[in-house]
C-alpha cells in the first residue's frame, strides 16, 4: 500500500481526478460542517444520555450481582449456623422435656404419698373419734339403762311391795351393790 501510495502520488493527476468528481472546497467545508453539526447534535441529544444510562445500568447490574453473591454467601453461612443452632436448641428442648418428665414423676409420687398419709391421718382421726363417740354413747347408755332399771324396779316395787319388802329388797340391793362395788 505504501508503495502504491507513492506510485499514486507520483503518477496520478489528482486535480484531474478531483475535477472529474466535482471536488470543490466550498462543498467540502459545507459537508464537513454538516457532519460535525450532526455528530454534535446526535451526541448532545442522544448518545450522551444513552451511554450514561447504559453505563449506569451495567454498574447497577454488576453491583447487584456482587450484592447477590454476598447475600448468597451470607445466606449459606447463616443457614449452616442456623442448622447448628437448631440442633442445639432441639437438644436443649429434649433435655428440658426429660427433666420436666422426671420432675413431674417425682412430684406425682410425692403427691401420692402425701395424699396417702393425709388420708391415713384423716382415717385414723376419724376412727379415734368414732371410738371416742362409741365410748361416750356406751357410757351414757349404760348409765341411762341403769337408772331406767332402777326406776322401773322402783315403780314395780312401789306398786306390789309392802314396806317391809321394800326395806328388805333395798337392804339386799344395797348389799349387792356394795358387794359389786367391792369386787
Amino acid at each position: 500500500m505504501v508503495f502504491s501510495g507513492t506510485v499514486l502520488f507520483g503518477t496520478t493527476d489528482f486535480s484531474g481526478l478531483f475535477d472529474r468528481f466535482g471536488i470543490d472546497w466550498h462543498l467540502l467545508v459545507v459537508q464537513s460542517l454538516n457532519f460535525i453539526l450532526v455528530a454534535f447534535l446526535l451526541y448532545r441529544f442522544g448518545f450522551r444520555s444513552v451511554i450514561k444510562v447504559m453505563d449506569e445500568r451495567r454498574e447497577k447490574i454488576e453491583s447487584g450481582l456482587v450484592y447477590a453473591d454476598r447475600m448468597k454467601k451470607e445466606m449459606a453461612s447463616f443457614e449452616s449456623s442456623r442448622a447448628t443452632r437448631v440442633e442445639a436448641a432441639m437438644k436443649e428442648a429434649d433435655d428440658i422435656v426429660k427433666t420436666a418428665k422426671t420432675n413431674a414423676k417425682t412430684i406425682l409420687e410425692q403427691g401420692k404419698t402425701e395424699s396417702h398419709r393425709m388420708a391415713e391421718n384423716i382415717i385414723s382421726a376419724a376412727e379415734k373419734e368414732i371410738a371416742f363417740l362409741r365410748e361416750n354413747i356406751l357410757h351414757d347408755t349404760k348409765a341411762k339403762i341403769g337408772s331406767l332399771v332402777v326406776e322401773v324396779a322402783k315403780a314395780v316395787l312401789a306398786a306390789k311391795m309392802t314396806d317391809e319388802d321394800r326395806d328388805g329388797y333395798a337392804a339386799a340391793a344395797e348389799k349387792m351393790m356394795l358387794s359389786k362395788n367391792l369386787q
Partner: peptide, 28 residues
C-alpha cells in the same frame, strides 16, 4: 448541490429519528 440537499434531509431525519426513539427521556 443535490447531494448536499439530500445530506441535509437525511441529517435532519437522523436527528429527529433519534429524538423520536428517545422520546419521553432516557430511562434506566
Amino acid at each position: 448541490t443535490d447531494s448536499i440537499v439530500m445530506g441535509w434531509v437525511i441529517s435532519a431525519f437522523t436527528i429527529f429519528a433519534l429524538k423520536f426513539a428517545l422520546r419521553g427521556g432516557v430511562k434506566t
